[in-house]
Write a protein that binds this DNA or RNA. Structure first.
Length: 884
RNA sequence: GGACGCUUAGCUCAGUUGGCUAGAGCAUCUCGUUUACACCGAGAGGGUCCAAGGUUCGAGUCCUUGAGCGUCCACCA
């Protein structure tokens, strides 16, 4: 073996192995109706992004599932792609322009978009190559991009259909406005942060009331109180002239349940145009709307001397003026949460604006939902349903299963409280709203393709809507737009609905929920059967990784340092769905060690096989044991993978490989080699481990085959099945005893401080295990470092020795010179003490009639067995104590 | 204000319908280079499983309450 390195060199293998798989076209499935498909639509990373640990986690998990299913015989499609990431990308390019002291307005819409396109094109390959670095076996021939012509067509198609169904509408309503991004945001694109602000108490006509935003007073049109609030009952319905900083203005007093009597004075000033709650109250009570803040976040012309100020400047000025007028009663410290933009952190300005919305409550008929012959509406009563109803139903009825299931509640809660989804954005980078306005006849047209002539009056004086669509609108179509929809392609028919959607729980709402809404509506199918949610990767202290903290780990650095397999394993093992995980270098290096262990196991197997002829027919005790262990390994790992218990499956393989195969079977093989068995077990390990660590397993698989021109590829081998004819329960048990005996001798040696190099004698009285022990006497001798081993069924106690009893088996190490009788007696007494406590506990349990009557028979039997064994050991020790 | 999660060895975490003298990796200590691997081997120490109640023959596991930490959601101006 001179040519195979002692240390596995990930760099030497990973890229070339990936290229080999790719070149052979192994990532692309065939459409084969005789086989079941397994499909995952990869959550598309931002086209201009770089790989972070969230991506790495996602890729490791999905590649694991996909590789497993591929080997298990499914036609497996993992469809990759990128997202145009409207706001995020536009912000990036604007940032670049800012360095040249330019804004997008300096360039104009067209040139700016050119620039973004260029930028995307130049950076798109980066993320793609990084995805490949992880070993992702995704089908690049079907790669998609949310802003490609095909997917844009799908976007327009859905928009048009929704418009025709009355689900998309244009309305002047209150929206979240980010002044920096200069755009609306959906409700869930708003984050919150704590702020230590002030609560201002104002004299307000007959009221005294508290507000955090005195500047909005300029837009007040009402005061609201709780309908049952006796303090204000006689004021309800009346109108008052309020003294304000710009003179008097009129308000109406309305009663609304939304008002909290406990807060402040129980009276709220109502600013319909700049507060969600106030907007709702105003709508209910037909109150006038008065917009005072514009889209730049500045006070409008109707604000007199305050016009042109930012809201904060205005707040300062108004507070000062109110103080001077004597209508500011007091100012209290007040900490509360303010809403900020999730992209840039700017404070959100709620304002009313003309926007496009998706109506989530409008009901459509049963027929319009049932587009396909499937179970979509199964067990659903009623004749018409809203987007919300159906999205709720498919999860409630179990058609879409969320792992872990506690996220069901979160999902339902969100869905039930969902308000109409504002989908128009005032940024330029994104799918332009496919609506055209005729300036001559005022006809409004929703079109799939760009149009230039009014289809009603033939005027060419048309203008397309300036706005673009929320980036999540296009990603919501991801599972089907990527398969060719609205065309009824073979891909769509075969691969949709997809089987698994794997993503972080942080985008359950942004994305997962919206995919369910869009797929059920547009295709009439659920988008996926199972949602597997992974947690966030945190640092060793449990903190979020961030640039400012400098605690981020770059997965690419880690791949460079430890190899992709090690990175994958560190993200797969020791983690549970839906829970955050911690990652740090020591963890990754630990799995790098495992990868190397596997590599060296292969080297040893090769060495042994080179020097020994195969003798597969004749299985010895150890062979039968490892065969038996291997069968249960296969069975358990398969079950765990089927149950999405990836961490369990991974650690099971890890433990078997290291602690069973390497520590025992390989050591035994140095004495009693059986090449056929060695190769068989190694082959199983490679197959089972392949979905977790594809590179090293494939590298080994290829090395084993050497220069064979017809060599096989591990990636497409069949997943192993447990073979009943290779299970030898009796022999496995015997071998376990042999292992235990060796462990005990080793332990005894250290206890009495026999130098490691010194070979000693041992007597073993094996009782019913004698034959088995004899068969493996050579192994015991070598692994326990013995000079001489005497095995008998039974015999005399050996004086001046240290002893240990494994059930009925007696072990003596005659070490006259080393045995300190006093110490040995003490050791034995301690053993007796421990055993006595144990036996007492067991007896107590077994003497309890309730236990024997109520516990299952096998549990009782197990406890009895334990007692029997403990008693045997106790007897032996007590006898031995006399000899010392 | 609601909902959820976490709390198990010094550290990071497993522990699947209750059956556990509670496990792993890292770290620590002792010893070690015989045909793979020092990215290694052998052995050892280390835990009232957050607290208090309850259900049960039996609780790390189920229920109730509480504490600490964390996350998400919501129209408290």
């Amino acid at each position: 073996m001179p040519d195979i390195a002692k240390v596995y060199d990930a760099k030497k293998y990973e890229d070339s192995i990936y290229q080999m798989w790719d070149k052979l076209g192994l990532f692309s499935p065939e459409i084969d109706p005789s086989k079941k498909p397994f499909t995952i639509a990869m959550p598309p990373p931002n086209a201009t992004g770089t790989l972070h640990l969230g991506h790495a986690t996602m890729l490791a998990l999905e590649d694991l599932m996909v590789r497993y299913k591929r080997m298990a015989g499914f036609e497996t499609l993992w469809l990759p792609g990128t997202d145009h990431a409207a706001i995020a990308t536009q912000n990036k390019v604007e940032g670049i322009l800012a360095k040249e002291h330019k804004t997008r307005h300096d360039l104009g819409r067209e040139r700016f978009l050119e620039k973004v396109k260029e930028y995307v094109a130049s950076s798109q390959d980066t993320i793609k190559n990084q995805v490949k670095k992880m070993g992702s076996s995704c089908d690049w021939s079907r790669e998609a991009y949310t802003f490609s012509d095909k997917l844009s067509f799908a976007v327009n198609t859905v928009f048009k259909r929704m418009y025709e169904d009355g689900l998309v509408y244009r309305g002047n309503r209150i929206v979240n406005w980010c002044c920096r991004c200069h755009s609306t945001l959906a409700d869930d694109e708003v984050s919150y942060k704590d702020e230590n602000g002030k609560l201002y108490w104002i004299k307000y006509g007959p009221f005294e009331l508290a507000t955090t935003r005195p500047e909005t007073k300029l837009g007040d049109t009402a005061v609201a109180v709780h309908p049952d609030d006796f303090r204000y009952k006689n004021l309800i319905g009346k109108k008052f002239n309020i003294l304000g900083v710009l003179g008097e203005f009129e308000i109406t007093v309305v009663a609304d349940e939304l008002v909290d009597r406990e807060f402040g004075s129980g009276a709220v000033k109502v600013t319909p145009s700049h507060s969600f709650m106030d907007f709702e109250i105003a709508q209910r009570h037909n109150l006038p709307f008065k917009q005072i803040i514009n889209e730049e976040g500045k006070m409008m012309d109707n604000c007199g001397k305050y016009a042109g100020m930012t809201t904060l400047e205005c707040r300062k000025a108004i507070v000062e003026d109110m103080k001077n007028m004597g209508i500011l009663l007091k100012v209290e410290d007040y900490s509360h949460k303010i809403s900020i933009c999730y992209r840039c952190g700017t404070v959100i300005e709620p304002l009313t604006s003309e926007q496009w919305f998706i109506n989530v409550n409008k009901k459509l008929s049963r027929e319009s939902w049932q587009k396909k012959d499937n179970d979509l509406l199964k067990d659903l009563e009623g004749t018409s349903f809203s987007l919300k109803d159906i999205a709720n139903h498919v999860v409630r009825s179990g058609q879409v299963k969320i792992i872990p299931d506690r996220f069901n509640n979160t999902y339902f809660h969100w869905m039930e409280n969902l308000r109409d989804w504002c989908i128009s954005r005032q940024i330029w980078w994104g799918h332009r709203v496919p609506v055209y306005y005729c300036h001559d006849c005022h006809h409004i047209m929703v079109e799939l393709e760009p149009m230039s002539v009014c289809n009603k009056c033939s005027s060419v004086n048309l203008k397309q809507d300036e706005d673009t669509l929320d980036t999540w609108f296009s990603s919501a179509l991801w599972t089907f737009s990527t398969l060719g929809w609205p065309e009824q392609t073979q891909d769509l028919k075969y691969f949709h609905p997809t089987q698994v959607m794997e993503t972080g729980y942080d985008i359950l709402f942004f994305w997962v929920a919206r995919m369910i809404i869009m797929s059920t509506y547009a295709v009439g199918e659920i988008p996926f059967e199972t949602v597997y949610l992974h947690g966030l990767v945190r640092d060793k202290e449990g903190r979020k990784m961030s640039k400012s903290l400098g605690n981020g780990i770059d997965p690419l650095d880690m791949i460079d340092k430890f190899g992709a397999d090690a990175v994958r394993l560190s993200l797969l093992i020791g983690t549970t769905p839906g829970n955050d995980m911690r990652l740090y270098e020591e963890k990754i290096s630990g799995y790098r060690n495992f990868v190397n262990k596997l590599w060296n196991a292969f080297r040893l197997v090769m060495m042994i096989c080179e020097n020994n002829a195969g003798d597969s027919a004749n299985l010895n005790l150890a062979d039968k044991w490892i065969m038996t262990e291997t069968q249960s390994l296969v069975e358990e790992v398969t079950t765990m993978l089927d149950e999405y218990r990836f961490s369990d499956a991974g650690s099971r393989i890890y433990d078997f490989t290291w602690s069973v195969f390497c520590d025992w079977y390989l050591e035994i093989s140095k004495i009693h080699p059986n090449p056929a068995v060695l190769k068989y077990v190694l082959d199983i390990i490679l197959k089972l481990a392949h979905p977790f660590s594809p590179f090293v397993t494939e590298a080994v698989y290829q090395e084993i085959q050497g220069a064979d021109p017809n060599s096989n590829i591990l990636m497409i081998q069949s997943w192993p099945k447990p073979q009943n004819d290779l299970i030898f329960a009796e022999e496995a048990k015997q071998m376990e005893t042999v292992v235990e005996v060796i462990k005990e001798i080793r332990s005894l040696r250290v206890q009495v401080k026999v130098e490691a190099v010194r070979k000693i004698q041992a007597y073993i009285y094996g009782a019913e295990m004698t034959t088995a022990l004899m068969k493996k006497s050579e192994v015991i001798k070598r692994l326990a470092n013995l000079s001489e081993l005497i095995i008998a069924q039974s015999g005399q106690k050996i004086e001046k020795s240290i002893s240990k009893f494994v059930g009925n088996i007696e072990i003596y190490l005659p070490l006259e010179s080393l045995v300190d009788s006093a110490k040995e007696r003490l050791r034995l007494k301690k053993e007796i003490e421990r055993l006595n406590a144990y036996i007492t506990a067991l007896q107590l349990k077994l003497n309890n009639n309730d236990f024997t009557a109520k516990a299952p028979a096998h549990v009782v039997e197990l406890e009895q067995q334990k007692l029997l064994t403990a008693r045997m050991e106790l007897n032996k020790i007590e006898e031995q104590l006399k000899e010392v």
